[in-house]
């Protein structure tokens, strides 16, 4: 549970921030219900629903059987009935068994009904690499973003996790909310940005990227856990190397091209760092969006790094070889500023 302090702003970790946000949303709107595996008694395998069942009861915070098709589809019926379900898919990799419910039903019913049926559903899930190999390490935000009708959120800090979850729950559109497992497990005191979490409810709006480090030579666009890596490299280079502007997207859909383009218009260099698969994904989308808006002549250099269309391997030596870590970010900045 949240550490009770008298201060209005505290250092709490990401899972606490999310649980606190859900608690505030559930208290303000009795139509918010949480469904998923181990979300009740245990409070989620990462603790991001901790304390909710005790406060709101086992009907509103429901431990489900391991039956993703059924409980994800339940969100559709619940939404038609006027509820605002938050469905937890323990790891985003498991979406394979219930993608049907997410993309054919939740994502499309508002459209197929001609706007007559809303789907205010949050699919809350954990992604990202923490050494669990190919079936427990994916990000997949690009996959969801590719499918029409879904908003896609991937926060990078405790502050944003709380405010973006509030935005997700109050959204009348469906939202896929991808928590990074590395961030969920990170200690509160070790966050370099977004560590202060106000106690009261606040909303970080969907579709507003955050410039976490100002710079003038390179625009580095990233999100989720990669933000702290990008920030660390940018800070390292401060004064000595190129000046890097780090943009945390916060949400993949809507994509804040305004903020990205305003930065690229100044720097002329674009680097996208994405922990998701490279091909046909977010990085290509960001780059083509910028080129379409600003024209190719606006870019002196462009590069993307991510997981190069390979499953995530198990051995640490192999895993480090495929992930866009700090060394890869340094090399990429070098390349675009050479």
């Amino acid at each position: 549970m949240t550490v009770e302090t008298s201060a209005a702003v505290r250092n709490i970790n990401v899972s606490q921030a999310i649980a606190e946000s859900l608690r505030l949303e559930m208290a303000r709107d009795e139509k918010v219900v949480v469904l998923g595996e181990d979300v009740g008694l245990q409070g989620g395998v990462f603790g991001s629903t901790r304390g909710l069942q005790r406060e709101f009861g086992a009907m509103r915070v429901r431990d489900t059987p391991i039956a993703e098709m059924a409980f994800t589809g339940m969100a559709v019926g619940l939404a038609i009935e006027g509820y605002r379900p938050v469905v937890e898919i323990m790891f985003v990799d498991f979406i394979g068994v219930c993608l049907e419910q997410v993309f054919n039903a939740i994502g499309k019913i508002p459209y197929m009904s001609g706007g007559r049926v809303e789907m205010p559903v949050v699919i809350k899930t954990a992604g990202g690499c923490i050494g669990s190999a190919a079936q427990h390490s994916q990000c997949l935000w690009g996959t969801f973003a590719h499918l029409p009708g879904l908003k896609v959120v991937a926060p990078s800090s405790p502050h944003d996790s709380k405010g973006l979850m509030a935005a997700a729950v109050e959204s009348d559109d469906p939202v896929v909310f991808i928590e990074h497992k590395g961030l969920l497990l990170q200690k509160a005191a070790t966050f370099e940005h977004g560590a202060d979490v106000p106690k009261e409810r606040y909303v970080v709006p969907l579709g507003q990227a955050n410039v976490v480090h100002a710079g003038s030579d390179v625009t580095l666009v990233t999100l989720s856990a990669s933000v702290s890596d990008a920030l660390a490299v940018a800070q390292e280079l401060d004064g000595t190397g190129p000046s890097v502007e780090v943009i945390d997207l916060r949400t993949v859909v809507p994509l804040d091209l305004d903020t990205i383009c305003a930065s690229v218009a100044r720097t002329g260099r674009l680097l996208v760092v994405d922990e998701d698969y490279v091909g046909f994904g977010l990085s290509g989308e960001v780059i083509s969006g910028v080129v379409e808006r600003l024209g190719p002549q606006a870019l002196r250099a462009v590069k993307r790094i991510g997981v190069a269309d390979t499953p995530i391997p198990a051995a640490k030596s192999l895993e480090e070889a495929v992930l866009p870590g700090r060394d890869a970010i340094r090399r990429a900045i070098d390349e675009v500023t050479r």
């Binding site: 009907m59 409980f71 589809g73 969100a75 559709v76 019926g77 038609i80 039903a105 019913i109």
Partner: peptide
């Protein structure tokens, strides 16, 4: 409501059933 995906009607109905109990 309806669905064009075979078998996908039942999870949605289950959600309505849960709403009825809630």
């Amino acid at each position: 409501s309806t669905t064009g995906i075979v078998g996908a009607s039942l999870p949605v109905a289950l959600g309505h059933a849960y709403a009825a109990v809630l």
